[in-house]
Design a binder for these strands. Structure first.
Lengths: 272, 272
DNA sequence: ACAAAAGTGTTGACGGTACACCCATGC
DNA sequence: GCATGGGTGTACCGTCAACACTTTTGT
């Protein structure tokens, strides 16, 4: 669009995009677990040819979450098991010469089980978190921020659980936490803490990994006081006073507000 | 702008606004402390005449924070002591008939000391949190969300401190916490916990409130591992790898990420 | 029997809560 | 002295880290 001079461009409404930081577990060269994320190669200026977060313009008839989901679909067929708004970036200058740009950024977790169908299309590639290429705009900083968020939340059973498959052994969950934090975690205490949360259910199945004692297989079940996001209030506003559930259980240092439970049907989060 | 039919309007870029939930302490009818917030009366459709959050369009040459600050200035001359991005709302239908609208919402705390100059302009009025009028759009839900955020964070010394004046007695801080949470808090334990945080400094001054023993006067001093926001990474990205400081001190259940320390000079947060 | 991972028990440090108590001040 | 809030002491309890220990499996 040919808006010519500077003063006119200042009045032009900023472009609004929705981007997603998609995180999945995968093996690194040595076989250890590591976080991977898909990036897309830019096909236009600025930063033509550079790698960037998946994203797109916000369509006016879609919710932010739907737009984030659409961006996610552009790089992987995997269903997100977790999708949460991360932050909105909109400072002038971050586009480095393009139009002023507001980016509403989400972060998503996808299960590791399915993560092998890393659809490597022409302009999409998965990178391990510690070997990122040069990134467009301020996307490197955004990814770092998303990783920080993940690391501060990985202690919560639901977050860790959404990085593995539908069912899992406790040792898997433990590996995930150690991979994400980089810190060793006492397995015995981890077991107790995670089980005490009441958010894991023993499926009854056993799984043998080596030639050793088989481990119990668990499934994640949402806690009674479910995750919580601003849309709950929006809904209440419309249909009047539904009990929002005891989020007070989270306590004053609780697992901060707007996570969105994307259960097993990923569309459930989109139809709110 | 005269975009006529529906399919064209869908393609129109959404309007981007920045709004602020401004919170201050004030007395209620019985003299108890209570949260107050300023609202503005809408002067155009939709929701003409209804009360709404202060806000404005996002100017392309301003940062989000600057825009939030500008919105704040439209209702009060008070300087924010705390300013943090709350959430971005952008679902279709929330504008109830207007253009599709994305609202990037901040929340701000202003000190109670100065809060008496509630500039009650024609179209601005302060309301106590429990006696809000009918609100435009989904602003009621947004305010409820901001209040929830405040209540989950009020246990942290810095948040509580920013709701009172520059200096204060511990009993004042205690009153604030009780007013915000609505729960009684053991004063003796509150003292110890808050002092143990290391974020309060004894000014040496004493203040007498009744005819009783005078109380020590404290001042808030930022902790070594300071508050933390995404812009830190953006800055690091530009000038290369400055140590971001030990935000790990917050721990896994820590006081979640993006608060913005608005010290005593409110512009300091805007020049980042 | 042995190796290796699954899973349990025990202890002690720490932080928070409840509540009794002393201190400083004005009347 | 006595009332009133400022400020301290202490005992108890729950949570969690550390780490020794037992159990179950395959070879």
């Amino acid at each position: 669009m040919g808006i010519g001079n500077v003063s006119e461009r200042r009045l032009a409404p900023p472009q609004v995009g929705v981007s997603v930081v998609i995180l999945a577990l995968g093996p690194d060269a040595t076989g250890r677990s590591r976080l991977w994320l898909p990036l897309v190669r830019r096909v236009r200026q600025p930063f033509l040819g550079a790698w960037a977060l998946p994203g797109g313009d916000l369509a006016a008839n879609r919710s932010l979450e739907q737009s984030a989901y659409a961006a996610l679909e552009s790089t992987t067929t995997l269903h997100p098991r977790y999708l949460e708004q991360l932050y909105t970036f909109g400072d002038p200058g971050r586009s480095h010469g393009g139009l002023p740009m507001v980016s509403i950024v989400y972060w998503a977790l996808v299960g590791t089980a399915e993560a092998k169908d890393f659809v490597e299309a022409d302009n999409v590639r998965w990178f391990p978190e510690n070997e990122l290429p040069e990134l467009a705009f301020d996307h490197k900083a955004i990814i770092d921020y998303a990783l920080w968020r993940l690391r501060t939340k990985i202690a919560y059973p639901d977050v860790a659980a959404r990085l593995v498959g539908e069912t899992f052994m406790l040792s898997q969950l433990h590996d995930v936490v150690e991979a994400v934090t980089g810190e060793p975690v006492d397995l015995a205490n981890f077991r107790r803490r995670i089980l005490a949360s009441g958010e894991l259910e023993d499926t009854g199945a056993k799984q043998r990994v080596g030639k050793h004692r088989p481990a119990a297989v668990y499934r994640y079940v949402a806690a009674a006081s479910t995750p919580w996001n601003p849309y709950d209030w929006l809904k209440d506003d419309d249909d009047g006073g539904v009990d929002t559930g005891g989020h007070a259980a989270a306590g004053p240092a609780g697992p901060d507000p707007p996570p969105v439970a994307v259960d097993d049907d990923p569309m459930s989060a989109l139809s709110r």
